[in-house]
């Protein structure tokens, strides 16, 4: 093996060239700049911002977190300061410590809210794409409700596409019978890409009282336990659509990144890993060249969808 062999981790997403495919997932990284207290975040490929709604939201009552053997359940409920504050305050703070372009994540309770929030956030110079959160299981009458019905999802995607000044990514829910159907609906609506998976609806109960630990009963399960489920869904969606797929769900290591890209991911989002180790995304990025070298991969972009040369029928 040659020493100092340059391993090319660069990828391109909707024309935005990224040093590496690693993006902290929405909801696990705040608005990014606070992670500057741990490390120099400019190494990150991009950042997906905390889910944002038109107006500020407090979210759900506490407790919002429950532990699981290989992950956690959260029911934050889209706590955020509202679209205008994100554009004018949070994005400016982030720009001071992160020079690259980011992905704005948009939540909502109505077509109007999704459209207007997308319009506002896509107009920020720092944003290169908008990610539609139609898969948040933690907001009553909103979020996931828009992501389960193919007709509604297609229509919503089309409405947001018309308003957005930047490419639109639809973040898909795994809480469906066949995720390739919602993926295709997003594509029909004009989505530039899809990201998957959001969390799986889950529940934990207190052993003494039998009461749900999460205040609102259930929440979204994430962490390494969901990785095989996510990988399978990314694999299936890659075959179903002709737009880029961003893979996420339980990625903890650089090896997981390679596996997710084999399945068809053009880029990856790292979520829950950031919450148990603030250095997780940094470690994954630093480990990638070593893992690529071990596997004989010279250019990371070459491996996207490599698993599909093998028949799984």
């Amino acid at each position: 093996m040659r020493e100092n062999c340059v391993r090319d981790t660069e990828i391109s997403l909707f024309g935005n060239v990224m040093d590496n495919p690693v993006i902290p997932a929405s909801g696990t990284f705040g608005f990014g700049y606070e992670f500057r207290d741990w490390y120099d975040i400019s190494i990150l490929g991009s950042i997906a911002l905390k889910g944002t709604t038109l107006e500020a939201r407090y979210g759900n009552p506490l407790p919002r977190i429950a532990e699981c053997p290989a992950g956690m359940i959260n029911a934050i409920g889209l706590q955020n300061p509202g679209a205008a504050a994100v554009k004018d305050v949070e994005l400016k703070k982030l720009k001071e410590v992160y020079p690259k372009k980011v992905i704005a994540n948009v939540g909502g309770h109505s077509f109007h809210e999704y459209v207007e929030t997308s319009r506002i956030l896509s107009s920020a110079d720092e944003v290169f794409a908008v990610e539609l959160n139609v898969s948040c299981p933690n907001v009553e009458g909103g979020g996931m409700a828009f992501g389960l019905d193919e007709g509604i999802l297609e229509e919503l995607t089309r409405a947001v596409k018309e308003a957005s000044l930047k490419p639109v990514i639809v973040k898909l829910s795994p809480n469906v019978t066949d995720i390739t159907k919602t993926a295709r609906a997003a594509e029909r609506g004009g989505a530039d890409g899809v990201s998957l998976i959001n969390t799986l609806v889950g529940m934990r109960l207190d052993l003494k009282t039998a009461r749900p630990i999460i205040s609102v009963g259930r929440g979204g399960y994430s962490g390494p336990g969901v990785f095989p489920v996510a990988l399978n869904m990314v694999y299936n969606v890659y075959e179903a659509v002709n737009i880029p797929v961003i893979g996420m769900g339980g990625i903890m290591t650089a090896e997981d990144v390679v596996e997710m890209m084999y399945a068809g991911a053009s880029a990856v989002m790292v979520g829950t890993a950031n919450l148990i180790d603030p250095f997780a995304a940094k470690k994954i990025i630093e480990d990638l060249p070593r893992v690529m070298e071990k596997l004989g991969i010279e250019k990371l972009e070459d491996i996207i969808g490599r698993a599909h040369k093998w028949s799984t029928k």
């Binding site: 696990t28 705040g30 992670f35 506490l62 148990i276 603030p278």
Partner: peptide
């Protein structure tokens, strides 16, 4: 509070 991360990232413990 029950916490997820403990350092401000997850919003699991907001009051």
């Amino acid at each position: 509070a029950r916490m997820g991360c403990g350092f401000g990232a997850c919003m699991g413990c907001s009051v």
